[in-house]
Design a protein around this nucleic acid. Structure first.
Lengths: 136, 136
DNA sequence: CTAAAACCTCACGTTGACGTCAAGGTCAAG
DNA sequence: CTTGACCTTGACGTCAACGTGAGGTTTTAG
């Protein structure tokens, strides 16, 4: 398969696939004329890479993790890396949960205008929002 | 309190605080000589802003959300915004959970080298990782 | 055989939340 | 009254994962 079809099936741009190759994340063979050629399994490969990117792993880290996916073995350093990233993801998830709770709280008090929510937050002079709002 | 102490107490840089002010997120008064002066409550304010940034809200969105925090009221548009961001955060959390599970799976198979894990991922010629590894 | 679609390699542009100098004013201590 | 810690504005630098042409070659459809 050529690059365009892989891109469509994996839901990314061809530019992204070339970038992955540049970063050493995705291999490709070449036809005699120089066009990239991929096996069908590359689609799953790209989806996995995307999953790692979505999780916030930088390409350098993914580059270290992928060989471990293939070999099923991890050196001690890579093992540390995996554990550290897992912990970082867990921490990020709890940050997100906290922020979501804050938003839910806002939604709740916006829905139901009783005047006794968080009074401490509305005393000081948080002045310039009016100005900001006026300018729009 | 001056900018340095707020920064220390909130755990951010002074540059970040000036950036927040530039973006309209954080107000400050000025001493006659031009130095910024904050009430003690600014520390909590900055922590809240940081929480939103950590959750992936861009500064423009935070700028719309903060007045709602202060007033306890949300216009219909802001209400939509809050709901959309909450949903986005929830989606991100499930992406993170999936990626964490993938990492946990890697950790599991790396811990216990039995040869029957995900055989489908290791058939095709994922060639150039050796080259990549050699060059390091 | 031709035209469109898809591919190639540079290589510069984008975005956001700051970092990092530069070149100075300000303020409490001794 | 000077030292040194702290503050000011301004403006350019950073980093990552691509986007976006430019200018040219290859493949495919009719």
């Amino acid at each position: 398969m050529r690059i365009g079809e892989i891109a469509r099936r994996a839901g990314v741009s061809t530019r992204a696939l070339r970038y992955y190759e540049e970063q050493g994340l995705l291999a490709s063979e070449r036809t005699p004329s120089g066009q990239r050629s991929y096996p069908a399994s590359a689609v799953e490969r790209v989806r996995l890479i995307q999953q790692f990117f979505t999780a916030g792993l930088p390409s350098r880290t993914i580059l270290q993790v992928l060989p471990c996916v293939d070999s099923g073995q991890a050196s001690p350093e890579v093992f540390e890396l995996l554990a550290a990233e897992r912990d970082r993801i867990t921490a990020t998830m709890s940050d997100l949960a906290a922020a979501r709770d804050a938003l839910d709280h806002l939604i709740a008090i916006a829905n139901d205008p009783t005047p006794e929510h968080c009074p401490a937050l509305r005393e000081p002079p948080w002045a310039p929002y009016d100005a900001v709002l006026d300018s729009r």
